[in-house]
Write a protein that binds this DNA or RNA. Structure first.
Length: 448
RNA sequence: GCCGCUAUCGUCUAGGGGACUAGGACGCCGCCCUCUCACGGCGGAAACCCGGGUUCGAAUCCCGGUAGCGGUACCA
């Protein structure tokens, strides 16, 4: 089995493209086959070396490796020219200068459902001669037989007047030469498959097995794009998602696994993946479910690994303790800093939080009491801090939250943080007292 | 226009003629846990596009309609 994947080399690896890549990978790995990468690089504007490298980088981040390639179409022009000549000489193809207008006029005369058939000319673009009778049948693993009447198919242009080959021709030749047995790609290619089939037929060769994946949409049912937030693998990565979670979530979008289990490693996915089980209907990419999954993956990493990745993501070091007390409160790597950054860089600015807690009734008194208790807390550990602060709760009879929130705001600047005892203990006595004093000064009228 | 694909809770899905009072997950709502935010636990609301057939019996098979999507380039 030789599986071929051809990402569109536009720089960003679209999430739909990532799923296609993943399914190709799962198919090849699950069956012990070979995964071949093909790059369509004829569009110099989009397929720059930098863009191609970005795609490869995104694939590597997803842990999707390949066995052969990338094979670039542009490196094969010699071969394409050769096959073109063969088709021309066997009259499976012909030169034609017919334009789009000519095609339209032809349909006007023969009916909308009649495909264009051109006249053989001395020069012009090269068109493939499509039989007038019969049908081209795509044996699709996912959809079953899909029949396209040949009569309604235009003779497709397979090479420009300058001899350069077009996609539907080049890809067929490349797949043939590479001995590709399985082509798994997006459904947007389904209607073009008959053209590729016809090339194989004209060459007297057997086409590969095709499987067309349903497309991926955004929450509004439209094609997934930047408007929907993250639309590419690179954007997911920047948003703090883990490759494990992205692989797992994306695989679920149409893989047709039993629904009682949802968490799988790449190897488990490869083991279970069945091409003929893949869903036929398009799926909507739901980032909320990805977030949920990501949170679980994050916590399964363990503190050491989570720390490593968080430090890599934030570009900071010395995060272990902060990560430890934040782990169960974040869903993405990007959630970490807003929640726990105050532990390293000081309180954040959130005037509303200050007003509601410290500046509010009794806030200053509570902070003074907390300062006193923490000044004497011994030892200054999580347990020691808890005992000290709970002592205030008991003495005053106030609700725990009423006592803890002012302290939280004093040390973090805002109302959401890791556990208060853990945070206070981690900061250390000196730093906590300093921050409380600063908050008291700001509340005004304090003499410390 | 023409050719083609698709159609189960808001979303991802299970289901492949009786096991369906249609199951799970995310999200949502309520309760519990609780120092905030979360995590976790328990419970709840929530779907077979419409119409015909076939059959003793249809979410499941067939046909039609409708809707969505894709293709229809000297793009990929």
């Amino acid at each position: 089995m030789r599986v071929r994947f051809a990402p569109s080399p536009t720089g960003a690896l679209h999430i739909g493209g990532a799923r296609t890549a993943l399914y190709n990978w799962l198919l090849a790995r699950g069956q012990g086959g070979t995964l071949v990468l093909r790059i369509e690089d004829t569009d110099r504007e989009r397929s720059t070396p930098e863009n191609v490298e970005q795609i490869l980088d995104a694939l590597r981040w997803l842990k999707l490796d390949w066995d052969e390639g990338p094979v670039f179409q542009s490196q094969r022009s010699e071969r394409h020219r050769e096959v073109l000549e063969q088709l021309l000489s066997t009259e499976h193809a012909y030169h034609s200068s017919a334009t789009a207008e000519d095609v339209k006029a032809y349909k006007q005369r023969h009916g909308d459902d009649r495909g264009f058939r051109g006249e053989r000319e001395a020069q012009g673009a090269v068109r493939l001669r499509v039989p007038d009778e019969g049908e081209s049948i795509v044996e699709d693993v996912i959809r079953g037989q899909t029949r396209f009447p040949n009569a309604s198919l235009d003779d497709p242009v397979i090479a420009r007047a300058d001899g350069s080959p077009l996609y539907n021709f080049a890809v067929a030749v490349d797949d043939l030469d590479a001995g590709i047995t399985h082509v798994v790609r997006g459904e947007d290619h389904l209607s073009n498959t008959p053209k590729q089939l016809l090339v194989f037929e004209a060459l007297g060769q057997t086409p590969p097995v095709y499987a067309h994946l349903p497309l991926l949409y955004g929450p509004d049912g439209k094609k997934l794009s930047k408007r929907h937030g993250a639309a590419s693998v690179q954007e997911l990565r920047d948003a703090g998602y883990l490759p494990e979670a992205v692989d797992n979530y994306v695989a679920l979008l149409g893989a047709g696994f039993a629904a009682d289990e949802e968490y799988f490693t790449l190897d488990e996915l490869a083991e279970r993946f069945r091409l003929d089980r893949v869903s036929k209907n398009p799926a909507v990419f739901d980032e909320r479910k990805l977030r949920h999954m990501n949170g679980r993956y994050l916590r399964e990493l363990g503190i050491d690994e989570l720390t490593r990745r968080t430090e890599e993501f934030t570009g900071r070091t010395g995060l272990r303790s902060a990560v430890e007390i934040s782990a169960e409160k974040i869903q993405t790597l990007a959630d970490f800093w807003p929640l726990a950054g105050f532990l390293l860089d000081g309180p954040v600015e959130d005037p509303a939080a200050f007003e509601r807690t410290i500046a509010a009734d009794g806030g200053v008194e509570i902070l003074r009491a907390a300062r006193e208790a923490l000044n004497e807390a011994e030892p200054f550990t999580e347990a020691g801090v808890e005992a000290a602060l709970r002592g205030i709760v008991e003495r005053t009879g106030l609700k725990p939250g009423k006592v803890f929130q002012p302290v939280r705001v004093a040390i973090s600047g805002t109302t959401a943080s890791p556990g208060i005892f853990e945070s206070v203990a981690l900061l250390g006595r000196d730093e906590v007292l300093t921050r409380i004093d600063r908050a008291l000064r700001r509340a005004g009228g304090d003499h410390h």
